[in-house]
Design a protein around this nucleic acid. Structure first.
Length: 443
RNA sequence: GCUGGGAUAGCCUAGCCCGGUAAGACGGUAGAUUCGAAAUCUACUGCUAGAAAUAGCUCGGGAGUUCAAAUCUCCCUCCCAGCGCCA
């Protein structure tokens, strides 16, 4: 949620930011007209209530003296009628106004590239040495800023669903039978590789001062609505029938709402927490995209980084989050690029977002594996997360970033490290898997 | 799931039975005092509207009774104790 006082006092900034995002400016106009009416009504309402308070105080003293109060009662009754009439209108205006306010997105950071659609995000850097199929060279060079760090391969790389079939690593069909499309059974060494990835990620973040934890996989409406936006409710979230519970779409949701309503000591900040959880997503807007395999599924596992910090430090911690994630992909030996996501493609909570995209040889494309956002005070305000500063309580800043979305990374490992009759396991994972290859009939 | 107890401001706590301006410690900020600090004293110390004076709101959440609700009634959430069930 944006700062309503700031919105009133610095309209131009919000109009510019919203325009760059392609946000409907009529919503801002409507907000301001409702807010004006709300403030006018509030003034009137308060004078009514003041009048009433004076009379009830009189009644109180008359009652003590044992005198008659019937006339005053009638007067209060009249005022009460006026109050309840106006209050009804005011509540209506207030809830409409607040609903609109909740739609207004965070202010953009200054270095966010401006764009209308999606394809104007800016390359930050490319790192690694990608295996690029000879027909995909142009794609690669365009996506990597004309990098020369790649190796051409003449044989078309096999896609992950074929590899999973070949080495007996998943059962998509039966998952479809019992749950529907976009589900999977992970089997054998692919499943063990996932466990290894999770353990590796947990150790990795633990060494970088994150408190690692397993959060609740379901949270209530109040927490969810504070942690995310309307769009996510519509597109992503599963609701539990009969209970006030939603399945989390990322560990960010419980990690953010964990401290809702709390006031932190300044000395506790920064607070680095990490959550490992399954993520449940309806993928309502993704019909027909990435329908094969385990690339885009309704349930996947993810290790998430989350930081609460003081406002003046949040951009440093944004860099820290990106570096942590980047180091993970470097250590796995996966070629990736980092992209500064442009204004039109940014979620409403984020002031700025970097994606890390790994090269997928069979697709001949960089695809997202990490999303790192600085939500500044937007999320903290919705969740009422403050810290005690010298000059009063202030909203903290919150940041989040994927560390490892395991299914996406499994696909990347299979595709990037495929050999003719096995898949090579990244060296850093071998201590966790106990095997260095995935081949035929391996168990 | 059952029975009982509880939730008051940053924190601790009074008020509840018996309805009438939410009292008091602690902590925090500023000032006085001091060479400086401690101690002491004074003021301020939630939210909303307002340039301000000021006014309104605020006792876990919601509804009701009443001229008037922290206080009475009903519903809900969470915490504690005991019992029951359970991986």
């Amino acid at each position: 949620m944006i700062d309503i006082k700031l919105l009133r006092s610095d309209k131009e900034r919000f109009y510019n930011s919203c325009r760059a995002r392609g946000f409907d400016l009529n919503i801002l106009d409507e907000f301001f007209s409702l807010d004006l009416k709300w403030r006018e009504n509030l003034k009137i309402l308060n004078t009514y209530k003041h009048d009433k308070n004076i009379i009830t105080a009189d009644i109180s003293s008359l009652v003590k003296k044992g005198e008659n109060i019937d006339n005053l009662k009638l007067e209060v009754e009249k005022i009460n009628k006026k109050i309840s009439l106006l209050e009804e209108e005011q509540n209506d205006i207030e809830s409409k106004r607040n609903e609109l306010a909740r739609l207004i997105p965070n202010l953009l950071a200054e270095d966010v590239p401006i764009c209308k659609g999606d394809e104007n995000s800016k390359l930050v850097r490319y790192v690694g040495n990608a295996r690029v199929f000879k027909d995909d060279i142009e794609n690669f060079r365009e996506g990597s800023g004309n990098s020369k760090d790649y190796t051409v391969i003449d044989k078309k790389p096999v896609d992950h669903q074929t590899l999973m079939e070949k080495y007996n690593l998943a059962d998509i069909e039966r998952a479809g039978k019992i749950a529907g499309s976009r589900f999977y059974f992970l089997k054998n060494r692919l499943f063990k590789l996932e466990l290894a990835l999770i353990n590796y990620g947990v150790d990795f973040l633990s060494q970088r001062n994150f408190t690692v934890m397993e959060p609740p996989f379901m949270i209530n409406y109040a927490s969810m609505s504070g942690a995310t936006d309307i769009e996510t409710f519509k597109e992503s979230l599963y609701k539990i029938e009969g209970d006030d519970l939603y399945l989390i779409a990322t560990a960010e949701h419980p990690l953010a709402s964990m401290l809702s309503g709390e006031i932190l000591e300044e000395s506790e900040l920064p607070l680095r927490v990490s959550g490992v959880s399954p993520c449940f997503r309806r993928e309502a807007g993704a019909h027909g995209r990435d329908t094969k395999g385990i690339f885009r599924v309704h349930q996947f596992n993810k290790i998430e980084q989350f930081i609460y910090c003081r406002p003046e430090e949040s951009w440093d911690f944004f860099d820290e989050l990106v570096k942590n994630s980047e180091d993970i992909y470097k250590s796995l030996g996966l070629p990736y690029r980092i992209v500064n996501i442009c204004s039109g493609d940014l979620g409403s909570l984020a002031a700025k977002k970097y994606d890390i995209e790994v090269w997928y040889p069979s697709q001949g494309k960089f695809r997202e594996v990490v999303s790192a956002s600085n939500d500044t005070d937007y999320q903290a305000r919705s969740l009422n997360i403050r810290y005690r500063a010298k000059d009063g309580n202030k909203f903290a800043h919150t940041l989040n970033s994927t560390a490892i979305a395991t299914e996406r990374v499994l696909v990347a490992i299979m595709e990037n490290f495929q050999e003719d009759d096995y898949i090579k396991v990244p060296d850093v994972l071998v201590p966790y898997t106990g095997f260095s290859r995935i081949g035929m009939d391996d168990i």
